[in-house]
Design a protein around this nucleic acid. Structure first.
Length: 158
DNA sequence: GCCAACGTTGGC
DNA sequence: GCCAACGTTGGC
């Protein structure tokens, strides 16, 4: 299957792309997704080798910070069973996991982050899910066209 | 800090 | 199964 592309959101105060750069093997598990739509993508769609756009949400300004690659496809999010943990979910059983995560590996930190305001001015990205009003999904599909456009912008502005 | 959007919960 | 209340996300 052709390589696919995704966008993952993270609040930089919680986990930033710089944190990813410092992580062991520049790889981390993407735990804590507790939304069914996003879960479905993590569980069923993201494959090792897929491209990831790393978005910093709740930043000033919010921006795309760089890219990563899916290092491991969906597997159960063990934090759901850690009692007292922020991501603990009493309703899910180990025999039938509700929540999934993937591993991502750093690919590139953009020299110049691409702010949302800037991205909104780019014609090729008009339909990008990230830029739609009320788009809260924390795991989003990205088209090859959008992926190329984002990389082109990153090269142009650096 | 505000609040629109939207997901989840729970009473009925 | 409806829907009001409530909680969360995340841009502004």
């Amino acid at each position: 299957m052709a390589r696919r592309y995704w966008l993952l959101k993270s609040e930089p105060t919680v986990f930033s792309i710089q944190d990813l750069a410092k992580a062991k093997g520049q790889t981390t598990c993407w735990e804590g997704v507790r939304n069914y739509q996003a879960r479905n993508l993590l569980r069923d769609e993201l494959q090792a080798g897929d491209g990831v756009i790393f978005h910093h949400s709740n930043a000033k300004p919010p921006h795309i910070a760089g890219t990563a690659v899916v290092a491991r496809a969906g597997y159960p999010d063990a934090y759901a069973w850690k009692k007292g943990h922020k991501y603990f979910d009493p309703k899910t059983d180990k025999s039938d996991p509700t929540w999934f995560m993937v591993d991502v590996k750093l690919e590139r930190i953009f020299d110049t982050p691409l702010s949302l305001d800037f991205l909104k001015t780019v014609p090729a990205l008009t339909n990008m899910m990230l830029l739609q009003r009320g788009s809260r999904l924390s795991v989003q599909p990205v088209t090859p066209k959008e992926w190329k456009a984002v990389l082109r912008l990153a090269d142009k502005t650096s």
